[in-house]
Simulated assay, not measured.
Amino acid sequence: MRQKLARVIGGVAMLALVAGGTACSSSSSDEASGGDACGSKIGFFGALTGSSAALGINERNGVKLAVDKYNKENADCKVELVELDSQGSPDQAPGLAQKAIDDTKILGIVGPAYSGESEAAGPLFNEAGLVTITPSATNPTLATKSWKTFFRAVGNDLSQGPAAGVYIKNVMKADRVYVIDDQSAYGQGLADEVKKVLGAAVVGSDKVQGEGKQTEFSAVVTKVKTANVKAVFYGGYYQEAGLIRKQLSAAGVTAPLVAGDGVNDGAYITSAGQAAAEGTILTCPCQPAAEARGTFTADYKALNGVDPGTYSDTAFDAANILLAGIKAGKTDRAGLLEFVKGYSGEGVAASYKFVEGGELDPAQVKVWAFKVTGGKVVPDQEIPKS
């Protein structure tokens, strides 16, 4: 029989109401799912160092808050958080995934955070039956791999890319656009979706290298300047986006830069410089972190010393789904996987129910545009889905 769930908005994690005692008791529920919850672990898999670390740290801090709250409510039966620093690199991902798989106490993973590392690690997690909930990897193809362990807590680029294109076309009314991507699974996929919406308005496109491999972009800057565009779209991450924006401005290109959630972080402003970054439009298949329900924002800042950033709230929710399963007695990997597959509930960022391929129910997906204003990334507007 399915356990009933109780959700305290912005407070304790989404905890299952387990009849007959605590999660540490040797109830029949525990025995059926492989043991007791005490000593169980969940992992966070994402960049905590390197050029893409800012978004990963946002997410890790959200997971840390969820675990901290859970452990305060379950002081006699705590869950441990294991941090798996991928540096945002697909090359690092398989070894890191195997490290998580080999630790049999790890029952679920929040992450991987990025699409490239998700592609590299996904087959291993699937083979091991280790459930993953990514708070931010948005490449649509991740849900087409027949991985039974893959779940996504946000919309994919089939929602974000078209929305970015709609914003450029209908809000900015830009009829000459240059599109650049970093050749990553995420960046190229997002750029391709934008191109589909803009059609003939795309007057040029180019590719650069991501992952900190390129810092000088004069060739593409010259092409953009020559094309006399009204907007530039970049598919990739914040470090390169900031440098491109900085070099565009230095060359006299005033057309605004538009980019996706991989750039939606204050670190982009640092990379570009405040003056150059001003007016940049950043999209995200997520709501503003300040819109998170309940006391999440205050609790996050109290624990981490900073305000929540992009995907802090979705990472918090993803962790709480895993913790709810552990609380419900799903204390082996197979049991927790089945729990997540059938999960339906409310978080601080959204309502969660997973459909085919592990995708978030499309009815729950929202895409927002943010704008760099006065040196900060601030909400601009929710973008219509079509």
Rank of each mutant, 00 (worst) to 15 (best):
F233L: 00
P256W: 02
L243V: 07
G260V: 07
A275V: 14
L257H: 06
A255P: 02
E278K: 05
G236F: 10
S271T: 10
A231Y: 10
A251L: 02
K230N: 15
G279L: 01
N264A: 12
Y237S: 15
S249R: 15
V263A: 14
G242H: 04
A241H: 06
Y238Q: 12
Y238M: 02
K230S: 15
E240Y: 03
G235S: 12
A251W: 08
A251D: 08
D265H: 12
N264E: 00
G279D: 10
Y237Q: 09
F233Y: 15
A277V: 00
A272R: 04
A255G: 05
D265T: 15
F233R: 05
A241I: 07
A267V: 08
F233G: 05
N264M: 04
L248A: 07
A255R: 07
V263Y: 01
N264H: 08
Y234G: 01
V263M: 03
Y268W: 08
A272W: 01
A272P: 00
D265C: 09
T270S: 13
A275C: 04
A267I: 11
A277C: 09
T270M: 07
D261E: 10
L248Y: 03
G242V: 00
G242D: 10
S271I: 02
S271F: 04
G279A: 12
L243H: 10
G266V: 13
A267H: 11
A275N: 10
D261T: 01
G266P: 09
V258I: 13
D261C: 04
A255Y: 06
A275E: 15
Q274N: 14
T270H: 11
P256K: 12
A241S: 13
L257I: 04
K230R: 15
A251I: 01
T280M: 08
I269F: 06
K230I: 14
A251M: 08
G279N: 15
G235L: 07
A259Y: 04
K246E: 10
Y268E: 01
E278M: 03
G242R: 09
T280Y: 05
Q239K: 14
A275Y: 05
I269C: 08
G235N: 04
L257M: 11
A267L: 06
G236V: 02
S249T: 14
A241C: 08
Y234F: 15
G260H: 02
I269L: 00
L248G: 01
A255E: 06
G252K: 05
A250N: 10
V258A: 11
G252F: 03
R245P: 03
D261L: 10
Y234V: 11
I244P: 03
G279P: 12
K230A: 14
E240G: 09
E240D: 06
R245F: 00
V253H: 05
V253F: 02
P256G: 10
A275P: 12
Y237A: 15
T270I: 12
P256S: 08
Q274C: 12
V232F: 03
A272S: 09
T254K: 15
A251Q: 13
A250M: 14
G242L: 05
T280R: 02
L248I: 01
A241N: 11
